[in-house]
């Protein structure tokens, strides 16, 4: 039986010889837009302007101190992901609408996508990468694995950072309260009930 969804990508059959024929077309393409040339010419000015616009920033991420100079437009999330290569914190919306970027700033859970990195000067940031102690996972990480609190895993860092904070905040009286106070973390895979179970387990371990 035929599965429509699998043939959806390449509905037609193709033959390899045809590609080869086509590749000669590539040599016909040799365009260079003016922007590239100009960017090269102007590089010097640009670098000065760039440096002038940068702002110093000292912060600690997962216990590691950083002294940086950055473009003030950079959000904490983009600083983590693109410059410090801590890609555990995720970007799902970039507008505070999903919670995938949740990290702790001085212990409080925040959406790092709406926080300009420079405003975190002097702060201690904890990301998912800083939660475990070496090989030893944080109990919340263990509980997420045990209760299968995720599927694709993309919301998971945010969920776990949120959940760790939630337990600290003491918002774990009942499933309903956990759900309400975990509602800033969207999971499109729909792992919510398992997430609640994982949190309950950690809470019970602690009490």
């Amino acid at each position: 039986m035929q599965n429509d969804l699998q043939n959806y990508e390449n509905p037609r059959d193709e033959s390899r010889r045809d590609f080869l024929k086509q590749s000669s077309l590539l040599s016909a393409i040799a365009l260079t837009p003016g922007a590239i040339r100009r960017a090269a010419e102007n590089k010097w000015d640009e670098k000065i302007a760039d440096e002038m616009g940068k702002v110093p920033l000292s912060l600690e991420v997962n216990g590691v101190p950083y002294n940086l100079k950055i473009d003030p437009r950079v959000t904490l999330l983009d600083l983590l992901r693109e410059q410090l290569h801590l890609t555990g914190s995720k970007k799902g919306c970039d507008r505070g609408q999903c919670g995938a970027c949740t990290v702790h700033a001085d212990g409080a859970r925040i959406n790092s996508c709406l926080s300009l990195a420079v405003t975190n000067d002097g702060k201690k940031i904890t990301t998912i990468e800083g939660l475990s102690r070496g090989d030893e996972l944080h109990p919340m990480q263990e509980a997420f694995i045990k209760h299968d609190g995720f599927q694709c895993g993309y919301c998971t860092s945010g969920q776990i950072m949120s959940a760790v904070a939630l337990v600290k905040e003491g918002r774990t009286q009942c499933a309903e309260q956990i759900s309400e106070f975990m509602s800033g973390n969207i999971c499109r895979c729909g792992a919510y009930s398992n997430i609640v179970k994982a949190i309950q387990e950690v809470k019970n371990q602690q009490s």
């Binding site: 990480q141 299968d148 895993g153 776990i160």
Partner: peptide, 13 residues
Amino acid sequence: SRVDGRLKVTGGA
């Protein structure tokens, strides 16, 4: 449990 669970809960995936 998921074989890639550890990577997903540590941000390593």
